[in-house]
Amino acid sequence: MKIALFPGSFDPVTKAHVDIVKRSVGLFDKVYIGIGDNSSKKGLLSIEKREQMLRAVFETEPKIHIVAYDGLTVDFCKSIGATFMIRGIRTVSDFEYEKAIAQMNHSLAPDIESIFIVSKPGYSSISSTIVREILRYHGDVSQFIPKEAIPYL
């Protein structure tokens, strides 16, 4: 069975995240969306709220499982039997950052393979960080967020 983890903070989930997940589902038997607590980012939503939001967005997809975790992502992969880690790439700077993490993860867990999925051009400017900033100033984020996520913001 091919099991993958798509880790992230998902604070909040964006249409770009949804696109990466939907494109991943056909590649794997099971896809976990792992909600991690990123110590370098100031959160907007609680982990519980993010979990509820993601469940609402993906409630009709039986291959997708939503789980919150803490600690090293490679350790979490091992605990759920995931041998693939999915990462979305929007920009060249994303690639450089993700490449460094993938190489470090490979050193820690050589049996877990990082898979990079390049975002569709229309989603390359969407990030949770920018969406959080728009929300802080009471802007309309509906074009960047799946409609199922709006009630959780």
Score class of each variant (00 low, 15 high):
112 I>P: 06
39 S>K: 10
83 T>Y: 13
119 S>G: 12
133 E>C: 05
115 I>S: 01
85 M>W: 10
128 S>L: 01
81 G>E: 13
44 L>D: 03
88 G>E: 11
67 V>G: 00
32 Y>A: 00
144 F>R: 03
13 V>C: 10
121 P>H: 04
49 K>I: 12
115 I>M: 12
26 G>M: 03
98 E>A: 08
120 K>S: 15
58 F>P: 07
45 L>I: 09
37 D>K: 11
69 Y>L: 09
36 G>D: 08
103 Q>L: 14
30 K>N: 02
144 F>N: 07
89 I>S: 03
47 I>V: 15
12 P>G: 07
133 E>K: 15
97 Y>N: 14
3 I>C: 04
64 I>N: 03
148 E>Q: 15
34 G>H: 06
14 T>D: 05
133 E>N: 14
122 G>S: 06
95 F>A: 06
108 L>A: 14
20 I>M: 07
3 I>L: 08
18 V>K: 14
84 F>G: 01
58 F>H: 06
134 I>V: 15
55 R>N: 14
31 V>S: 02
140 D>S: 15
3 I>A: 06
35 I>H: 02
37 D>M: 03
67 V>F: 07
2 K>L: 06
111 D>Q: 12
13 V>K: 02
15 K>V: 08
10 F>K: 00
92 V>D: 04
126 I>R: 12
104 M>K: 01
17 H>A: 11
16 A>V: 11
93 S>C: 00
114 S>V: 09
8 G>P: 10
137 Y>H: 15
46 S>D: 01
38 N>K: 12
134 I>D: 11
36 G>Q: 05
9 S>H: 01
56 A>H: 09
85 M>V: 15
6 F>Q: 01
125 S>V: 04
5 L>Y: 02
106 H>A: 14
88 G>A: 11
103 Q>D: 10
151 P>T: 06
153 L>M: 15
65 H>C: 07
67 V>H: 10
52 Q>A: 11
152 Y>V: 11
85 M>Y: 10
149 A>D: 07
143 Q>A: 15
6 F>R: 01
51 E>Y: 03
3 I>H: 08
115 I>F: 01
102 A>D: 10
70 D>R: 13
56 A>L: 07
92 V>L: 13
53 M>H: 09
19 D>H: 04
105 N>Q: 05
2 K>I: 01
116 F>G: 05
63 K>H: 14
53 M>F: 05
14 T>Y: 02
110 P>Y: 07
99 K>R: 12
18 V>N: 02
40 S>D: 12
45 L>E: 05
127 S>I: 08
60 T>W: 06
85 M>E: 13
133 E>D: 15
87 R>Y: 04
58 F>D: 08
23 R>M: 12
153 L>D: 09
147 K>G: 02
139 G>P: 14
91 T>N: 11
35 I>S: 02
144 F>A: 13
48 E>P: 03
137 Y>T: 12
30 K>M: 08
134 I>W: 07
127 S>Q: 10
3 I>W: 04
61 E>A: 10
136 R>C: 13
6 F>V: 03
